[in-house]
């Protein structure tokens, strides 16, 4: 088989494109693993299903430095919040007790860029439920 000059060029360009894609997706995979690791550590290995858990967040946050977040999961023992696109995904873990009036909490968080917020609730029986919500960020809130 003879390779023409045109084919050779096409191959080279394709290879370069593949390499670039790899380079861009590698950090994304790393962050994904950090999120999964955090979830497994929190639930103790239980795979989170879906259930009665809700995140309240603005659809578009103009300032990533303070994004108001609300999370509630009736009956949960604790809730963990993760921001998948931040340099370190952990945000906060809330623990409730018998004196908690409702299993919900509000706080303000930093978001580096447009990303998904993940909330995982651990139930008293050891099961876990999770939900996701995406927030668009106009100005990032980490580093600077």
């Amino acid at each position: 088989m003879t390779v023409t000059r045109r084919e050779a060029l096409g191959l080279a360009v394709g290879g370069a494109a593949a390499l670039t894609t790899l380079r861009f997706t590698a950090p994304a995979f790393a962050a994904g693993n950090a999120v999964e690791d955090a979830i497994i550590e929190f639930t103790g290995g239980a795979k989170p299903g879906s259930g009665d858990i809700a995140i309240g967040a603005p659809e578009i946050a103009e300032n990533g430095n303070t994004v108001p977040i609300e999370v509630s999961a009736p009956g949960a023992a604790s809730i963990m919040l993760l921001a998948a696109g931040n340099p370190s995904p952990g945000v906060a873990t809330f623990h409730f007790s018998a004196l908690s009036g409702a299993q919900e909490a509000k706080t303000r968080i930093r978001l580096a860029k447009t990303q998904d917020i993940v909330a995982i609730a651990k139930m008293p029986d050891g099961s876990a439920i999770m939900t996701k919500r995406s927030v668009k960020v106009t100005i990032g809130g980490c580093g600077g």
Binding site: T66, N86, A105, T107, R108
Partner: peptide, 16 residues
């Protein structure tokens, strides 16, 4: 609450 660096400056927490 266990808090990590992703919480904003002047941390605000509200609960029931």
């Amino acid at each position: 609450a266990d808090i990590e660096p992703s919480v904003s400056a002047n941390p605000y927490i509200e609960f029931q």
